[in-house]
Structure formats: C-alpha cells, structure tokens
Design a protein around this nucleic acid. Sequence first.
DNA 1: TCTCGTAGTCGAAGCGATTCGACTGGATCA
DNA 2: TGATCCAGTCGAATCGCTTCGACTACGAGA
Lengths: 334, 334
Amino acid sequence: MVKITDVARHAGVSPSTVSYALSGKRPISEETRQRIEASIRELGYRPHAGARALASSRSNVLALVVPFRSGIHVPVVMQFAVSVVTTARQHDHDVLLLTQEEGEEGLRRVADTALVDALIVMDVQLHDARLPLLRALDRPSVLIGFPAEPAGLTCIDLDFAAAGGACVTHLAELGHRCVALVGSPPEVYLRRTGFAQRVTQGFTAAADERGLTSTVHPCEATPAAAQAMAERLLREHPELTGVVVHNEPVVQPLIDAFRRLGLRVPEDLSVVAICPDELAEQAPLPISSVAVPSARIGARAVELLMRKLDGLEVPEATMLPPWLTRRATTAPRT
Amino acid sequence: MVKITDVARHAGVSPSTVSYALSGKRPISEETRQRIEASIRELGYRPHAGARALASSRSNVLALVVPFRSGIHVPVVMQFAVSVVTTARQHDHDVLLLTQEEGEEGLRRVADTALVDALIVMDVQLHDARLPLLRALDRPSVLIGFPAEPAGLTCIDLDFAAAGGACVTHLAELGHRCVALVGSPPEVYLRRTGFAQRVTQGFTAAADERGLTSTVHPCEATPAAAQAMAERLLREHPELTGVVVHNEPVVQPLIDAFRRLGLRVPEDLSVVAICPDELAEQAPLPISSVAVPSARIGARAVELLMRKLDGLEVPEATMLPPWLTRRATTAPRT
DNA sequence: TCTCGTAGTCGAAGCGATTCGACTGGATCA
DNA sequence: TGATCCAGTCGAATCGCTTCGACTACGAGA
C-alpha cells in the first residue's frame, strides 16, 4: 500500500504538505501542488479511509435508513436511495445502508462508533420512536417526512397537503362536484404516518372550501381491493365524477376496474393520482398526476445535511410544492 | 467520547486487556471479563470505527453495487439489498451502497481506500467491464449472476437454465405440446446479460428434448407490449397452449391480455412465470411460478464473502436449484 | 529601517484502537 | 525438583492521516 509518506518523499516535501495540498486547508504554491499531484498519480496513492476518519473525526459517510414494509412503494424508496447516493458522491461522501429493522440501536451504533457523520431517516411516523434519539445524537440528521412535533429536527418532504389540495382544485376547475380520495392501505393510517393524513387533510379542506362533496377511503394495495373499491364507490356515490388516488400499486387496477364497470375514463370519470411521474407516464393511458419527486427529495436531503455538516443553518422544514401534470385521465365534467 | 483507555482505567486493567476481552483473541479470565463488560456498559463505550479499521486493517464494511436501469425489476433489487444488509449485520458488518453508475472507478476507490473489506456486485454482464478489476483487486468479491468466463471469481445465482427447463417440464407433464417463452426486454439481451440467455437455453433445450414446439420472444416491460405480444402469439402460433414468462412487470398484463382475447387461463392456456414468489402469490389468480429467491441469494452471497474474508475456500460457482410452485395458472391440456 | 502580515512549508503530536512480545505464577510432567 | 507449558495480563509499537504551532522569506506600511 502506498501512503502519504511515500508521496511526500517522491515529491520532495513533507507529509503535512501533501495533506494540505489535498485538502486545500492551507495555501500551497502552484508549483509544489503540481509536483504532488504528479506523484500521487504516478504512485497511485489513495488515502486510507480509516486513518483519515481517525485523524479528522470525519468519516465522509452518511447513513441512510430505508423502510421495508407493507404499504410502501418500493420503486420510490429505491429511486430515493439512488439519488441520495449520487448526490452524496458529488459531495465526496459515501452512503451506508441501514434497514428500519435495526431501529434506534442501529442509529446509535453507527453514530457512536463514528462510522457515519450524519443520518438520513426515511418513513418517519407522526410519533416516531426514534425522534428523541435523533434530537440527542451529536450528529446531524435529516428526516424524510414530518412527525407531529418537528421542532429541533430538519425535515423534508413533498407538501402532501398541498398535493391533495392541488388534485381537488384541478378536478374542481374541470367542473367536478363530487370527488373521492382513494388512499393508502389502512395500516399506513394506523401507523400514523404523516403523509397519508396530510393528503387527506389537504383533500378535504380544498373540497370543503370549494363546496364539493367528498369522501375518503383507505385501500389495500391489491388489484382485488381496487376492484372492490371501484364497485363500492359507484354504489355509494352515484354522483361521483372525480377520483384522487394516493396509492401507487392501485392506480392502474382502479382505472381498469372502473372501465370494467362500464365507465369511460376520462369521459365519465376523471382520475388524478399522486405518484411518481414515471408511473403516470408509462401507463397505457397516461395518468394526470401530482409527482412524488423522490429523486429531488433525496438530493435535497443530502444537500441539507452537507450544509449542517459545514455548520451552516438550515430551515427546520422544507416542503416541496406539488406539481400537477395534466395527462389523459382527467377531462371536463360532461 | 469515551475510549478504550477510559474503560481500562475504570475496570482496573490495561487497554490491551479490554481489546482482547472484546475480540476474544486471547484468553481473559471470567472475572476480569465481567468487570470489563460492566465498565463498558456503565460508561457506554463504543469502539471508534475508524481507529479500529486503521489498527486492524479491517473496516467491517461490505460494498454492495446495485444496478438501476431499464429491464431490471426494482423490487427484486430492493429485496436483495435488504437481505444483504440483514445478513451482513448478523456477521457484524455494515453495507456501503454504490450505484452501477460509479463503475470501475467506484469499485477501485472503495477498495483502495480500505473503506470496505469486500464487494458484492449485482447485475453482472456476460462480458462485464469490471471483471478484470475484480480479479485484480486485493479484496474478495462475490458476483450475482454469471459472466461468460467466471474462472477466478465467485459467482452465485439462481440456476436460470434449470428454471427455464423446469417450466417446460411442468408444462410438458401437463400434456402441452406447443410452448412459448416471453422473455426480458430486448435491451437485456443486447447487453448480453447472462440470466436472460440462460433461461432461453434451458427453455429451448428442454422443449427440444421432449419434442415440443417452442418459440422465444423478448418483450418490452409495458402493458401495451404485453397486449401486442399476446395478439402476436395467438396469431402466429394457433396451437399454443403453454406460456413461460420471464419478465416481472408483464406477467399480469399478459394474462389479462389473453383473457381479453377470449382465452381462459388456465383452461385454454397455461402460464408459468419466473418471478418472485410474492408477485406470484399476490396476483388475482395466483400464478404458477419458479421463484426468484433474491433474499436467499443475498444472504448466501454475504456468507460466501464472510468465508472468503476468513481465508476459507469457497466454490467458484453457486447455482441455486429452481423451485417450481404450481398455483392456479397451469392446468392439464384439454 | 523596523515592524507586521502573509504565503508556503515543516516537524511532531495526536486520533483510538489492535497486536506482538514479554512477563508472572501456578499446574504438569518426568 | 527443575524444566516446561499455559492462562492471563501488560507495555509499547504501530496503523496512516490531519492539524497545530513554528519557522522562513518577502513585500507592504509606517
């Protein structure tokens, strides 16, 4: 293994000079820097991560805690993870993958052993057991999703309330008067996950404000449940002409089910989803939707963390505004 | 931060004794060990990961390189990643997440900086550009998937050829005489990814051996492509009564398409998939399938790596035998 | 002319663990 | 009874890098 002293000798300088040339923490003459860089290239030098971490008390590694349980759309998680890794690399950091299962002990472990400099936690519950720990930890963290009491934490997410509202507004502007929200599976509500409730709030508030009739229905993430839901909606709400779906796996099955029941989409029934753009675009009939911008959230989360690591102030709450794209599943009420 | 010298002082022993008590590399009297453990608990000591890595030249971190591009079923990747993390934790290791994008440079970086002790590489191509590097690296690795020339590497995967064969055998035993394989998207074949070709080989060989008529059709991973494929198959192969599908997103759409074309499944047409069990089980009509056991492969990959890290010999090739579960989409030919 | 600040560099002291060799005091064996 | 071995412990060296304080030389300001 080639080490910093080898480089130093080869370049005719001291090890500390090499270190400073690399980090830029002290001025080094252009000429010396050139010589050092040449030596590094020639010898193929790579600083030892452990040694660096020990000496600088910075590991340049971020922890990413991913959820893995029912009611969570896997591709969204994956896309998020990839964007975190990509963005972290742009800031010269790596990403350690932790599962939700490891729980608080896992967080404490990677923080206390100085294995990571900072943490990103996904799928935060309204009353998440990890919150006190995250507040107490000596390492910065960013949460994806908003707990009930976000004070003292840094949180980021799509503004789900506004997203729910945007869907209603879109339908209302198309003339619809009776709308329904098909939401996440019941267990997601039971876990009291923030985003599910926020969508509901935004949806209901917007509907009330505009004087629309509205109902809310949690729904299992299976085609069978979608079919049942479609039948029930038509039976219980004959007036229904607009549906908002916030449950990725069910979007397409639900549309299919309505069709099977004799309704034309969008002529008889308009459907708006809250889902990733790819899903909406790739559907047989492209779906009008509010994007769930996982990649952007991931990138932003990393940037917030970097700023915190640099000792800068960051906003406690970052809500990304919803962006609705009208595609082929919504039309004026006839 | 509490360090090993603090523990040593508190327990009335030397730092090295604490270290040996922790690692078990030298005998420590029961009584002393107790005392040390008590001190550790009381002080809340956690060994510093960087210091440990520096002194022992072991980081206890594995690299996991995940693919993220078209034609790859995301939930499979995710499930795999989670099982790798879980198994690694059982062996006291953590997992660093890398994306395919980082390429060879990324692998070299984490290996040369001693950030990781070993690597797991997914989605290996037949002539993967990373193979020479992996062979040359001073760190052990395990590949998921088989390249054309696996000598000198450790590879593991489902035995896809046998899986393709098992599907044909199953159909043949039910009396089917004309079968088709609906495979991965064309780009997967173009990339010359091993598993796609192996399924084809196993499928064709088994069909030939049993004297069945067989055809092979790559297929885009969209419902529209599934519909077109179903139409084409019926048009070109009126005799067709058995279909093998190796393309997760298309399984259900294809079955739906056949139904729309007036065929009953399984009465008129039997369908077997090669896909994760969850997908097969959760379908409206549970699908007969050969499981893609991502979780088991992930766990096994980690175990192989651990053995290599311990300096033990491991087999160069590990092929998990296919396991076919008959569910509701296959029936005897009528 | 004398200070003073600054660019550029060096040497040495850590950072917090692991590990190797050496030491001690019984128990074992001939 | 002396030689030998082993369990149990300690001290010191080491891992490879960062960083702090010091030093030199030089130009600017007074």
